[in-house]
Simulated assay, not measured.
Amino acid sequence: MIQPEIKSLLREDISILIKIANSGKHYLCDCGEASLLTVKEVQSVSAVFISHTHIDHFSNFDGIFRHQIGSRERVVICGPKNIHHQIESRLKSYTWNLIDEKAIEYEIREIVSPEEINVYILRPPHWNLELVKTQNFLFEDEQVKVEFAILDHKTDSIAYLFREKDSITFHEEASGFKKGKWISELKTAFENNDEDKEIEIETTVYKVSDLFYLLKRNQGYRLGVIMDHAAIEENYEKIKAVFSEANLVYIESFYKDSDQELAKLNYHSFASASGKIMKDCQVKEAVPIHFSRRYTETDVIEVETAFYKAFREN
């Protein structure tokens, strides 16, 4: 199960930690101030997902790698165009004469377009970029697959969807057969849509498609994180394409409805606009996040009220 936690207090810049149940590895979305983020949690982060590199989303990156140096792990960093040069510059601005080359390794995945991801390696102490490959997917491990949309914030702003892997349930009571390795073979054929495969059960050979009725696909949990974006139709079409019917989405709602002109000027969203796009996406649950730092708690309540009114409106 995917378990997100907002690690920033009110008037702090945004940072969201994503934990995976029964896994010691976490993911981090954006590197703003995060008073609630512990050193132990930072040291458990295996991948960082940066929406864009405005200072309020990137300022705490130094604090993150400060606690990762020496882990001897490979940490993946995903982000928009030029993210590799920006991280290289941050790392090269320090002196690393006491750090050996195996202290850590960063794998940076630069999102050039929906189909083009450049992959770079950075290692201490010199932190020289090495382009190793270009691929057409962003991130996938044993727990999740991450999809994305490139939104307009007068710069590329990446919105991420964390898709938990689907699970397959076997209905043992309906089979009438003894347990055996044939169950895993059946599941593999089901996952690969290999209907013509044959398996042997208790000395009899069966076509797997005749046994697919014993299996059920359970869709994995889907968590979305949509940071800064202009409230425009082009962005909304991209959001719908990736985030429709997600289980939970955190979405930037930077301004009150009464500050719509500021939202337009600064390529941000506002309360009711964010709520409406979540309604249009038919997501099961949506949470407004990342409010203007000048807002008081009363202002934030106003944002949340307008957001949920638009989201839940019949």
Rank of each mutant, 00 (worst) to 15 (best):
E5S: 15
K7I: 10
I14E: 07
I18F: 11
I18H: 04
N22F: 11
S23R: 02
Y27K: 13
L28M: 11
D30T: 15
E33D: 11
K40P: 00
Q43R: 15
Q43I: 01
H57Q: 09
F58L: 06
D62L: 04
S71P: 07
I77L: 13
N82W: 10
I87W: 03
S89K: 14
W96T: 05
N97S: 13
E101M: 05
I104S: 11
Y106N: 02
E110R: 10
V112G: 01
P114I: 05
E115F: 08
I117M: 12
V119Y: 04
L122D: 01
H126F: 12
H126P: 00
E130W: 01
V132P: 02
E142I: 09
V144C: 14
E147I: 02
L151W: 03
S157T: 02
I158L: 10
I158A: 08
Y160S: 06
F162T: 00
I168D: 01
F177D: 08
K179V: 06
S184H: 11
E185L: 15
T188W: 02
A189T: 11
T204M: 06
K207N: 14
S209G: 07
D210L: 06
L211W: 11
L211P: 06
L214F: 01
Y221A: 03
Y221Q: 14
R222Q: 15
M227N: 13
H229S: 15
I232F: 05
E234W: 00
E237W: 05
A241C: 03
A241W: 00
A241G: 04
V242P: 01
E245I: 00
E245P: 00
A246T: 03
Y250C: 05
I251N: 06
F254L: 07
D259Y: 08
D259L: 04
D259S: 06
E261C: 03
E261D: 14
A263V: 01
K264I: 09
N266I: 01
S269H: 05
F270Q: 02
K279C: 03
A286R: 04
V287M: 12
P288E: 05
S292K: 07
R293F: 09
E297Y: 10
V300W: 00
I301P: 00
V303D: 08
A306M: 04
Y308N: 04
F311H: 06
R312G: 05
